[in-house]
Design a protein around this nucleic acid. Sequence first.
DNA 1: TTCTATCCTGGCACTGAATGCCAGTGTTGG
DNA 2: CCAACACTGGCATTCAGTGCCAGGATAGAA
Lengths: 248, 248
Amino acid sequence: MRGSTPVGHSYPRSVETEVAVAQARVSTREVVLAAVGLFTEYGFERTTMDGIAAATGVSRRSLFRRFGSKEDILFAEHDELFATVVGYLDASPDDPLTAVRSAARMVFQGYVRDPEITLPRYRLVRAHPRLRDREVAMTARYQSAFSHYLTERAGSAFSLASGVVAASVIAAHNHVLRSWLRGSGEDEETVWVRFDEAMAYVSTAARPLLDPQGGPEPDRVLVAVYPSGAGNDEVLRRIGAALEPGGS
Amino acid sequence: MRGSTPVGHSYPRSVETEVAVAQARVSTREVVLAAVGLFTEYGFERTTMDGIAAATGVSRRSLFRRFGSKEDILFAEHDELFATVVGYLDASPDDPLTAVRSAARMVFQGYVRDPEITLPRYRLVRAHPRLRDREVAMTARYQSAFSHYLTERAGSAFSLASGVVAASVIAAHNHVLRSWLRGSGEDEETVWVRFDEAMAYVSTAARPLLDPQGGPEPDRVLVAVYPSGAGNDEVLRRIGAALEPGGS
DNA sequence: TTCTATCCTGGCACTGAATGCCAGTGTTGG
DNA sequence: CCAACACTGGCATTCAGTGCCAGGATAGAA
């Protein structure tokens, strides 16, 4: 933070003794924290880029260069996480569904690890439709990445299934995440249990979608739809008839 | 469209003879069509609100008042559709999953019915990240509405399942929609068949999530997971055993 | 060390989206 | 005929975002 910034506004600045030391580049995280503070105190649109510049000591011009836009400051760290997750997926040797589960876990950890940013950001996102859209767009990017990854691994015949599975995983992730963001005081261990439960739940439902006709897979899945009036004998007869052709 | 607009720019205006007839309020649809035309011809950000004002005869100020922002012009009709769909859901007496399926069908029809707007809009959305985010936010609104509706009907114990099902329905919807938007020359009947197939597919997978223990529904769903080595007899035996307790 | 290429930063000017304010113009209902 | 109201357009202002240019730091070559 510099001492020579022409303020002009009334944004408070962290008081610092004027030292003649060469300033290291103000880190991304410092800027994000300062911006989050201003946003929560004055509201998002009433905080100007000049204000953030004054509060951080980074010039207005440099803020735009480094972050792109005022919104992007809020989601800067999130963007880095996204790059990490995509890199992980590309390199993962695991079974596709497992890899996606792990990727979702990484994303979740990205939130839980850094409540100092994610909690106030969540409050801001809830209050401002534009920011909400931005947040939604972020999760959509994950969903798209997951979907493409699954389609690539499972084959293009499974593109619909991949899209559905990716959407389900993201939905489960967001479900647990939102409840953590809302009840901010929750035990971290409990959250992780609930996350893993949700993931187990959704991947049980998802696995059969990604390979319905068996192969080297451990399990097969049988889905039968029948009138609720049918007795068990009738159900068994129909299933037996449907099973005949194949043998084992 | 007025004849007295001080142009100043070089946007083309539909040539009209100067008639002294009182102009009716320019319809939303007319404005959207004109804006879409300008966007596709000159690009989104190089089209100014002054340009749209000149092309439509509606003043810049009134455009902002009626649409809110430049982006909102592109999605104005979509917003109306959203209101319609939500209204339908609230009033629907059907089984919840069926109602959501019908709602998704309405949304799909909203696109297919009006290719004059949705097709060029899709091209714009693909090209401009900001517009893409906006589009994504729209579908997220549907997803959220579906999810809340399902949770409300199925009980809060099913909130995770509701979120997953809503996400799956939206994913299937978007899957078919995108393929229609890309291959724009497709037969309309074929599209509808594919849409209904996708919906049947996803709701088969979704139904057990929303009601695992059966109820007064017309059909029941049986899902059996078994080792691929098991013979048909063994499968039938297990299913029979699992069916016993209930009776019919 | 010195020169040079390169990168990052900050200042300046400008475009254009978005909003508040006000005045004019119907339109409706008494 | 007049009042209340709704809608519209013009004007001025704020502020996000961008292009341009100049200064300072660093790294590498001479």
